[in-house]
Design a binder for these strands. Structure first.
Lengths: 178, 178
DNA sequence: CCCTGCATTCAAAACATTTTGAACGCAGGG
DNA sequence: CCCTGCGTTCAAAATGTTTTGAATGCAGGG
């Protein structure tokens, strides 16, 4: 194959590996996704392993994760007994999958814990010595800051997850105005 | 100290450790930041090390990073020879620091590489066989998708970094309309 | 000019994550 | 009912990251 095509392909895989890392996935997952994305035809597990030069086991496990996250889909190739995969090529769908299930849960948990802590501090107030009360008020201020941050994150996530790409910005402003 | 205060403090440190991890920092950095955030008084390096039960060396290195990222500031305590730190308590400032320097560079690099790859493909077109040309066009489509994603990310970053919290949403829409 | 109290550095150790490949399981063909 | 080809699993090995603490540096006091 022409060296330019090879070079572009490599560069894209590196970039997607990096991106995967950034989102807390393994680099290999990003590369597998990239390999599928850059292939007009679905690929089998061995083809993926051969291309990236990683073991069967690794391919198998990582592909399962990719499927779980909605980044790749199994595809039936007639006359073949092997599994074939193709990338979910709608990036916005992928992003919505990830943000929607993982990030949103994280943010919600954080807000929940912050709320609990505020309640605990308020409930305990009467048991506290004067200095402790002062510290409790200080804590409440800091926690309020954190709450504001996570609430912002929640709005932003909602805006991206709960809409098409074209509607993202609208969704954000609508939420803000209310 | 009252157990509620201790519990709330612990919980907050865990949460900030998690958050730090998410943003690609070490968990200890998050905990150090949290310890400073939850202390009305500046703390010395030994106090930080004692509280979190980590070694002097680790405190020293991680605090340097925290300072580099604008998450903590050195503070002079009169009559003390030791270094004292306090947290940068404006969360939005912290976020702008991180997004502004690190993330923005990442996104810019990605866009730059994508652009280069498009150029390479176009320059090489006439050297390619018919099938290779078809693959090249396929690559160009995929790369265009990635470009759209990173361009969106760039807009979003700009909106958050280049403004006060209150102006974020405005900034996003303004850019979008142009 | 030495001593003390800190802060910093960095190589080695502890720890965590990822990768591998051999063993296993399973479906379909003969 | 065995054989083959493929996918999955998982313990062990490789690799990567973080933590430690001993050595070092540095400033100020005596």
């Amino acid at each position: 194959m022409h060296e330019t095509l090879v070079a572009v392909n490599d560069s894209t895989l590196s970039g997607l590996g990096r991106l995967a890392r950034f989102f807390g996935f393994s680099e290999v997952m990003g590369r597998l996704y990239g390999t599928l994305l850059m292939s007009p035809e679905p690929l089998s597990l061995d083809e993926l392993g051969d291309t990236l030069d990683i073991s069967k086991g690794s391919v198998s496990m990582n592909m399962r994760d990719l499927e779980r996250w909605g980044m790749a889909k199994e595809v039936w190739v007639r006359g073949e007994r092997r599994k074939f995969y193709k990338a979910e090529s709608d990036m916005w769908q992928v992003i919505r999958n990830v943000l929607g299930s993982r990030e949103q849960r994280e943010v919600q948990m954080a807000l929940h814990v912050l709320g609990e802590n505020i309640e605990k501090l308020q409930a305990a107030e009467c048991e506290l010595s004067p200095e402790e009360q002062q510290l409790a008020r200080y804590y409440l201020d800091r926690i309020a800051d954190l709450q504001a941050f996570f609430q912002f994150a929640q709005l932003a996530l909602h805006a991206v997850v709960g809409s098409d790409k074209a509607l993202d910005f609208d969704a954000i402003t609508r939420i803000e105005i209310e």
